[in-house]
Amino acid sequence: MNKEINQKISQFLDDELDHAELDDFLLKIKQQPQLKNTMNRYYAISHLLSGKDVLIADVGFLDKVGQEIEQEPYHFLSKRSIKRSIKLRSFGFWSKASVAMVASFAIIAAIVSQQINVTTIQAPQILVKNKSIKEGTAIKTAKSSQHERFKAYLQAHSDDIYTHGSLSYQPLARVVNFSSNNN
């Protein structure tokens, strides 16, 4: 069993898994989180053998990236984005998870450079993280403010809140659409 899963990890890192195998593999990773350690080890070995230096990411890093992706605000989507997201959804849950995982590894690959000193590597990471949190907070606050303003305007104008009760139960941002070619 271990041999089989280790082989799958190796194939995953070499991008040799087909779609069905990838789904199955990601499910196993989810069920057995300890496999992420093995995967990280394989990843490091692979890069060291190829003569590249590597930085090992925290095991929880992938989870954090996954959570960040999940928490990414998705309101105020353009029509094009909505169509694209609908297409993505049609791939199914695990396909989406696959995309997220692959994206996570792409991010790790981008971060990986020199494992000279852990402290020197971590410092810029923390700075970047703080910056992104501040930017994220600012964006969320701005969108929240837009949302509240739009909601206040609608409440003053529309009877929908009475006939559908929608304004108090459904975040408007989820159904607001920006467009230039509506009727």
């Binding site: 105020f76 701005a142 303003r149 739009f150 609608l154 003053a156 607001v176 659409n177 920006f178 509506n182």
Partner: peptide, 22 residues
């Protein structure tokens, strides 16, 4: 309805649509 207020930094300009409301 026409609304006028002091502009804010996060103003979303242009068209917005919510169901039948533009």
């Amino acid at each position: 309805s026409v609304y006028r207020e002091v502009k804010s930094d996060d103003t979303q300009l242009g068209v917005q649509t919510l169901g039948t409301v533009n």
